[in-house]
Every structure is written in C-alpha cells, then in structure tokens.
Simulated assay, not measured.
Amino acid sequence: MSFTLATWNINSVRLRAPLVCRLLSEEAPDILCLQECKSPVDKIPVQDFTALGYTHMIARGQKGYNGVAILSKLPIEDIGDQDFAQLGHARHVAGRLENGTVIHNFYVPAGGDVPDREVNVKFGQKLDYLAEMRDWFHGDKPQKSILVGDLNIAPREDDVWSHKQLLKVVSHTPVEVNALGDVMDAGGWADVTRADIPDGQLYSWWSYRARDWDAADKGRRLDHVWASPDIAAAAHSSRILRPARGWEKPSDHAPVFATFDL
C-alpha cells in the first residue's frame, strides 16, 4: 500500500476552503491533515471535500481557535485524542488506516511572544504540552505510526532564516528545541522531511508581516512529518509546496508532503 500524506496549517478551514479544494484537486494527496481549523466540527465544509473524493474525515474543533482534522480518500478509523497539559483545546486527533497505520495530527501551542514561562503563561503551556507528549510516547512507544502537524518549533539551525537572530525568538529557542528533541527521542521518531531533504535552508512558514514574504524569505520550518522507527525507511518523496503560500488570501503556512510505501 502506497499513499501520499500532506499536513497544512490552514488558518481557518471555512475561510480557506477554496484553497483546501485547490490543493486536493491539484496535488491529490490521499490524506490531508489540517491544523488551526478554527471551526466547530459540524461547521467544517466537509461536503466540498467529499465532492473531491475525500469521503472520510475525523476532526476535533472549537469555535474560532485551534482545531485539527484529517481528510482522507482512504477509510480511516477515529481512535481518539489527547488533551495534553489539560488546556481544553482541540489540538490532537488520531486515526488508523485499514492497514493498521496510525496517524497523529498535532497542533502544538505557539507559545506567545516572550520565551519565559514566569512572565508568559502561553510559553509555559507550550513547554508543559511538549513534556506530556514526551511522557506519553515514552510510556506508549509508537509502532507503525506517523506524526504530523504544526509543531510550532523550527529545530535545526537551517530550519530558520537566521539561527543567530532567532535564538531568543519563540519557536527556535534552545529550551523549545530541546523539548521537541525529547519528544522525538521518547518515541524514537524519525524526521521524514529532513531524511529526504537533509541539507540546506527549508521553511514551511512565512510571516504575514513581511511586505513581500517571498523576496524577504524570512521563513521557519514549523510543520513536520515524523515516522516511527519501524516504518521510517518506507517514507520518501518529501516536499514543501512553497507556491501555496502565494495563493490568493493564503495561510501563512505551506503544505508539507511525504509518501509512504507500507
């Protein structure tokens, strides 16, 4: 069984439903994992996606914030969600394909603007969320599993436009990078994207604040595709669809793709 999976922080699935449909029509991944849907599940325009062949959806949502969804051409079973750090947020959902592959879709808290939990509650919540992810995967080792999503951390020096200038900026601080590394180590996860594209600057997010995001190219790789060690070698053909960042009324994130032969 071979399938292509994509992950995309869509920044409002209702507002950007036409972009989702464009991606599904032009790129046709078998599975699309969305984050920051900003919609109750019953308000997601699922009929638009069903019409394109994505007849399966599992999702968690809330009004105006957060939200995760998995759209699939392939049958997929809802196997639950986790509320790490007890935030009451829709930030995780998991599904299982018929061949037994588990897909985890995550939207890790962004963490606010100040990388100090003593003065910024949101940063503390982010670190607590990552710590509970680590503990969960340490206790329940993933097998035949894929983890995707907006993890809101750019871990490598070449995952940001300037390592030196972003060392004290939330998403690239050493404490966050170390926390994400602990999550990876706990589950034995492999970074599929960087296994396929090991060298060079690589981004999946560009701020709306830039007058010309493409020319400035001050990006960060916040969106990830990981695989458990037993299936990591089955992944290939990773890519980031940078042009999607330039579509009309875009998300500030670009979709990340990988193919698995399982």
Rank of each mutant, 00 (worst) to 15 (best):
S12H: 08
L127D: 06
C37R: 00
M133A: 05
A254K: 04
E77S: 11
R209L: 07
K122Q: 06
S207D: 14
I76S: 00
L180E: 08
G200M: 06
S237N: 11
V20K: 00
D191K: 02
I70Y: 08
A51D: 13
A6P: 01
S228H: 04
L166Q: 09
L15W: 12
L166M: 12
W247L: 02
L147E: 10
F260D: 03
N178A: 15
L71F: 06
R96G: 04
N178W: 14
A90M: 03
G219Y: 00
S204F: 00
Q201P: 15
Q62V: 04
V108E: 09
T50E: 13
N9I: 09
Q201H: 13
A210D: 15
E176F: 04
H236R: 15
M1I: 04
K73T: 00
P45E: 15
R91G: 01
L262G: 05
L151D: 07
W206P: 01
V169C: 11
T193R: 07
D196K: 05
I103M: 02
Y208V: 09
R96W: 10
V108M: 10
L24S: 03
V102T: 06
H56Q: 08
S145I: 11
W226K: 00
V148A: 00
F106L: 14
P250M: 07
N9T: 01
F106P: 00
V225A: 04
A234H: 14
W8S: 02
A90Q: 01
A244S: 11
F3I: 05
Q35N: 05
D78N: 12
H236L: 07
V170W: 09
A85K: 00
T55L: 13
I70R: 01
E132Q: 12
Q35D: 08
V169Q: 12
K63L: 03
H104R: 02
M184D: 14
W213S: 07
R209H: 11
D78C: 01
L262K: 06
K126C: 09
A227W: 07
K63R: 09
K164H: 10
I153V: 15
D217Q: 09
I10A: 09
V20Q: 01
G246W: 10
E36Y: 03
N9P: 07
V192A: 10
T4H: 12
W189H: 02
R245C: 09
